[in-house]
Design a protein around this nucleic acid. Sequence first.
DNA 1: GCACAGAATGTTAACGCTCACAATTTCGTT
DNA 2: AACGAAATTGTGAGCGTTAACATTCTGTGC
Lengths: 328, 328
Amino acid sequence: MTDVAAAAGVSHQTVSRVLNGSELVRADTRARVEAAIAELGYRRNNAARLLVTNRSRRIGMISAHLVLHGPSMIAVSVQDAGHKAGYDVSLVAVEDFSTQSLREAVGRLLDEAVEAIVVAVAHREALEQVRSLDAAVPIVVVQGVSAGQPMAVGIDQEAGARLAVEHLLDLGHRHVAHVTGPLEWVEAGQRRAGWQRAHEERHVLPGPELAGDWSPQSGYEAGLRIAEDPDVTAVFAANDGMAIGLMYALHAKGRDVPGAISVVGFDNVPEAPYLWPALTTVDQEFSLLGRRAVELTLQALAGDLDPSTQLIRPALVVRDSTAVPRPS
Amino acid sequence: MTDVAAAAGVSHQTVSRVLNGSELVRADTRARVEAAIAELGYRRNNAARLLVTNRSRRIGMISAHLVLHGPSMIAVSVQDAGHKAGYDVSLVAVEDFSTQSLREAVGRLLDEAVEAIVVAVAHREALEQVRSLDAAVPIVVVQGVSAGQPMAVGIDQEAGARLAVEHLLDLGHRHVAHVTGPLEWVEAGQRRAGWQRAHEERHVLPGPELAGDWSPQSGYEAGLRIAEDPDVTAVFAANDGMAIGLMYALHAKGRDVPGAISVVGFDNVPEAPYLWPALTTVDQEFSLLGRRAVELTLQALAGDLDPSTQLIRPALVVRDSTAVPRPS
DNA sequence: GCACAGAATGTTAACGCTCACAATTTCGTT
DNA sequence: AACGAAATTGTGAGCGTTAACATTCTGTGC
């Protein structure tokens, strides 16, 4: 900076003013300084700047399971929205949810001087943990959100599940079986709750519940069992991956989809429309979620700790994997 | 730090020594300092540290198309490997490949004081651009790599494609059609080259070539056209997403897979084994790629600008979407 | 009991920037 | 031409660390 100042024949402070877009610099001085900057290929040293301003313009994000569709979409969209708002986003992926590794993740972010932390980890306890670490920076939650939670934006999982189940019941199915996600995930619990609630409301008993873990493999295993139960005519899988495994098992067992059994997934992965049959599923608007999360973060940074939870309503996309039940 | 020093009754320099694991601190002083640190919940200020050491322990990564399987896997694995090596990884996603936005991405990373940049952008020109920006830090390339390129690790796309095509020819197909990726992607070009080469080697003419853009949609469109050509008995799609769209179109047109037409994809997405039919595809070891990339980066940082390119050989995974051609 | 080496600790000066304030221009008024 | 206010520019300190060097202990051999 001193070099630039010398080259432009001004003081370092004037260079600083130019860099920060201050109004109180005469146009020609500004031009001279800018020329010097370009000439010398000068870049401001952010460490020094951060040291004195104490504002990093960086927000941190804790994610997990980035191989899964949902988490990765969220990560990308938050990152994107953050950049657009002029913030850098540091992502740290955790592999397990021990206090240990969560503490480490938060620590790493704090070391990077993040101004806020976006937590995109859907594990029930993990959320508590991070909250309890209480990191002197605002924390915004974007996964595993339920109504009434402070500083949180989420997609209404329960509503999505109800959409799926109601669609099936409307078609005339007596009840709907459910392949759950791993129930430590808040999302999995919420989708399961929506499935139950939808049945309750119509005063019918839900179909069988099978435990899955999001993987196509687990959907496949659930499918093998469902194929043997002639009573099941409709299944709601908690994500598209499991729905895919499920449909595979049903095919393999000669149970036609949707002829014999209807299937609904959750996520609307890009290949969903091109599965055979094209998968009816629930679509979540992740990009909106990311934007909202960043908005909320910015609000928090501005001191407005808005306690209201925002829930984004997902939408059902009806394709060819669901149909009226075959009269038996 | 001064506070900690005061609390422990030592000088700030001793605190600094403890923090940096210096040997020249007596065990009991160290303990006292550590107690004070814990007590006060002190964290070292990295900006100040960076300011004086000039070592950020951060590497940058430029990615694009994070929604696609390959790029996102690479991003995750580099990030992961970087963390394991004690580096933070800053990811910036670019949306287009204009000099403008590439320059901005590099600029953003440089502003974060990254010590090296990993470029995971498979656009032909983009690579040139970034290289020509010549950023005073080592640059490692992990996508769109071909033999003989300096500072690069990649997966041998051409070899993967040949594996796929040879498998089909071995089964007895006269030739193989190809749905390409967008040819601005180096990968797409390389897979196409492998497809051509495999035919050349057996002295047969390749089947028709159709242009795709990685999306299932484009695979679907290609599939509709292929379904009308009775001469095509085998197709190599440049990624699994297009293979999925392709198979959908073939189904829709009543062309059985693999009975009438065999299909091979590329990527081995998690749902590949559960498609109907389970998809024969090419598996790339992304986690290894990430590790190698970080190793290479570390080497470069150590001043060893190894000019040799490392190419990782992918593997063919044979499932149920390929079979011997039906005698006509 | 003393000199001395080596271990342990302390002191001071950067690093490159912004902030608060001081000094100098500039320009409109009279 | 001189005054003063506003606009522009400059000065010095300090952000929290580490590096380099200075100082003070500690224990050993005689």
